[in-house]
């Protein structure tokens, strides 16, 4: 009874986490669209944004094609306990690395990420669709950590480090 309740609660937490992560990504997307609203004047920019949003989809289909086996049924407590620590470490490490990387690139090119909106859209759409894909089909917690890390780094960078 207790374990059952425990599992259902964990399941629910994971779902909330899923919705929050997706929500953050959607907010970033809307923010990027509004940020670029003045710049999106020509037909060309619209094409570029559509391209960067569509970019991950064929790749994910290809990955799914190759790795068709399911890992999903393994969503047990054991599996979670085993993967908790590496997944958390990966999350933190990815956030730090991704933020450093963005800072370095901005420093090297002397350009803000906001000026290269297409790149921001590309990172956002690739990581969020991989996240949803991984969550729905594989539930690999380590991959979850990395992808959440990239999304968080992008969100932190856009909301706090861009004056």
């Amino acid at each position: 009874m207790l374990t059952g309740l425990d599992t259902s609660m964990q399941q629910k937490q994971l779902n909330i986490a899923f919705f929050i992560t997706t929500g953050i990504s959607v907010v970033v997307f809307i923010y990027l669209v509004f940020l670029g609203y003045d710049e999106v004047k020509t037909f060309k920019d619209v094409v570029k944004i559509i391209g960067s949003v569509l970019f991950p989809i064929p790749l994910l289909f290809f990955i799914r094609f190759i790795v068709i086996e399911h890992f999903l049924p393994e969503n047990t407590d054991e599996y979670k306990i085993k993967n908790q620590k590496p997944a958390t470490i990966l999350l933190v490490v990815t956030i730090v690395i991704a933020m450093l990387l963005m800072q370095i690139i901005e420093f090297l090119t002397q350009k803000k990420l906001e000026d290269a909106l297409v790149l921001a859209h590309l990172i956002n759409s690739t990581s969020i669709s991989s996240y949803v894909f991984n969550y729905l089909l594989y539930n690999n917690l380590k991959a979850n950590g990395i992808l959440s890390g990239i999304l968080m780094a992008l969100a932190i960078h856009i909301f706090f480090f861009s004056a």
Binding site: K48, L54, F55, P58
Partner: peptide
Amino acid sequence: VTGIAEGIIVYMI
């Protein structure tokens, strides 16, 4: 087929 799709998208971006 995946390569064709990605090639078109990469050009567009």
